[in-house]
């Protein structure tokens, strides 16, 4: 869907993006992760053609990004905002028409969404009469009303209460199932980890990592396992086929050890432990995105 190639964006005094390249696959959910100030919003603004890069190019379905693509993108900025004194219905239709919908088309779609999200009674209300959460909901509708192929959401869940956040999450997943490509941007990595098919990590204007979430996490596995057993605490004398990293005692006479393997497999571990104790669980430790990020940043520094 999106091919981002060697994007450089220079602001007075600092470089917001330095040679960033990404591939966003069609129909997938892509996470743009990184701490605040890493350059995520700069990149998103370039994709939305709000600003232009100093060098590099972006291809939208293989075509160089141009004005005609604007109507196929839905954008929810991090800083939410609507006209405070304008009625919601009118405002949504206006925004949809700016994205190329006809008035009738926009009205029809808006009715559908308002019904779906229980907002029917808001039509004649002004934005300033709504609560913050309601405003966010309205803004989400404005983002997806014109049925964009690519939906860009900058910090989508900030500002929502848990119930609405869940609601919006479900809507996003449904849109994705119907074929829309989603591009998330967030600094709270754990919040989108389970949603994303692929991610890219941005740190200090550079892309430091990207790929499928599964692949990344698998590639960051380092033969570490958790084993939980019930029984007396085992004593390791060094003859065991693994290295013990930590030991913790749990409830009901259970113990958990974190171990690291070198040449052998988990089977060897089980073989060694089975005669000695009762094993409840053996689990491979897969690092979280947050841990990977920290490890990666430390590596660079």
């Amino acid at each position: 869907m999106l091919s981002i190639r060697n994007i450089v964006k220079q602001y007075a005094g600092h470089r917001a993006l330095d040679d960033v390249s990404l591939e966003v696959e069609s129909g997938k959910i892509f996470g743009l992760l990184g701490p605040n100030g890493a350059g995520k919003t700069s990149l998103i603004r370039i994709i939305n053609q709000i600003t232009a890069p100093d060098s590099g190019e972006i291809l939208f379905n293989g075509v160089k990004l141009n004005q005609s693509h604007i109507e196929r993108i839905g954008y929810l900025p991090e800083e939410r905002g609507l006209y405070k004194k304008m009625e919601i219905g009118e405002q949504m239709i206006y925004l949809a028409r700016l994205k190329g919908l006809t008035r009738d088309d926009a009205t029809q779609k808006l009715k559908f969404w308002f019904k779906k999200l229980d907002m029917e009674s808001w039509w004649k209300k002004k934005i300033e009469e709504l609560s913050k959460g309601m405003q966010q909901k309205a803004q989400f509708v404005a983002t997806v009303l014109h049925e964009p192929d690519l939906i860009i959401l900058d910090e989508p869940f900030s500002g929502f209460d848990p119930v609405n956040a869940e609601l919006i999450k479900d809507e996003i997943l449904e849109l994705n199932r119907k074929g829309a490509t989603i591009l998330f941007s967030t600094h709270r990595m754990e919040s989108v980890e389970e949603l994303c098919d692929s991610i890219a990590l941005i740190h200090k204007s550079h892309k430091i990592l990207d790929g499928r979430v599964k692949h990344i996490r698998n590639s960051y596995k380092n033969e570490t396992y958790l084993v939980e057993y019930t029984g007396d605490q085992l004593a390791f004398d060094g003859s065991q086929p693994f290295e013990v990293i930590s030991e913790t005692a749990g409830e009901d006479n259970s113990n958990t050890i974190k171990i690291k393997l070198s040449d052998n497999s988990a089977n060897d571990v089980l073989q060694y432990l089975l005669p000695k104790t009762r094993i409840n669980m053996l689990q491979e430790v897969i690092p979280s995105m947050n841990e990977i990020f920290i490890e990666k940043v430390n590596l660079i520094n």
Binding site: I70, Y75, E79, L82, Q139
Partner: peptide
Amino acid sequence: SRIIEVIISS
């Protein structure tokens, strides 16, 4: 009101 970013993305 920060609507500016929504508008100039259109």
